[in-house]
């Protein structure tokens, strides 16, 4: 991916914070994203490491990870009602 730099004086952007992506929305859709320099460094290293092939895990969203955590822990699963089940 090519890198195009712009002077900070030429643009107005929110301060990028560590471990955070600022997604700029336009017409209800993601238009651009702002990441801090550590995240950019990580992104470039990942890109160099994986090239065209990116492991699926790289794209799992926070919400999917939270659902996975709930599914794995079993803390938010149906309580099995055996009596009701037998009565079906």
């Amino acid at each position: 991916m090519k890198t195009r730099t712009v002077a900070a004086n030429d643009v107005r952007i929110p301060d990028p914070a560590p471990d955070e992506v600022v997604v700029v929305m336009r017409y209800g859709k993601p238009y651009a994203a702002i990441i801090d320099t550590d995240a950019l460094d990580l992104f470039l290293r990942m890109q160099a490491l994986f090239g065209e092939y990116v492991p699926h895990e790289m794209g799992i969203s926070d919400l999917e990870l939270k659902i996975h955590e709930l599914a794995e822990s079993g803390e938010d699963t149906e309580e099995f009602d055996y009596a009701t089940f037998l009565a079906r």
């Binding site: 659902i67 709930l70 794995e72 938010d76 699963t77």
Partner: peptide, 9 residues
Amino acid sequence: LKLTRFAKL
């Protein structure tokens, strides 16, 4: 595959 109710979200 496991299921979750996701009621805690």
